[in-house]
Structures are given as structure tokens and as C-alpha cells.
Amino acid sequence: MKLKKLMARVSDFLDADSKTQLEEIKSIRKVLKELKSKERDLKDKIAQVPAKNTEDKEELQIKLDVIYAQRKKGLDRVKELKKLLQEKKRIKLQRASEL
């Protein structure tokens, strides 16, 4: 299933033009930046919650963990996109040299 999903993504990526792909990277980066600032806010909030208020602290911690997971997913996706973009560039150059 995972391989299928990956293959579908790769084929989508190869079909799309480089401009769209760069735009995708750019917009994910924008979201990542927003998530980073949310992460900072949450950390500040957690630090301000009194130690005995475990319930609130736990709720905030969940939000923080989710943001970590989302950021990780986003960073992985950017890495993957960049790698594919480089690969595409390499194939193009190779074709050009063959001609």
C-alpha cells in the first residue's frame, strides 16, 4: 500500500511541471513556518501553566505533539520533493547531453 502510494506520488510529481512543484515546496514551507511559530507559542503557554494544573498541561502537550508530528511530515515531504526535483533535473541534463 505504501509503495503504491509512493509510486502514485512520484508519477504525479513527474507529470507536473517544475513550476508547480516549486510552488508546492514553497507553500509547505510557509505552513511549516506557521507551525513553528505555533510551537513556540504553545511552549510558552505550557511554561506558564501552574505545575498542579496537569489537565491543561496535558491538553497543551497533545497540541504540541501533534504539531511536532505535522512538522515532521511536512519536512519529510519537502525533502522528498527536493530529491525528486533534483532527480528530474539530472534526467533532463542527461537527455540533453545524449542529444
Partner: peptide
């Protein structure tokens, strides 16, 4: 209307 949907868990 942004790419944030891609990062949804």
C-alpha cells in the same frame, strides 16, 4: 485554501 491539508495526519 493552502497546502496545510497535505500535512493533516
Amino acid at each position: 485554501e493552502n497546502q496545510s491539508d497535505q500535512l493533516t495526519l
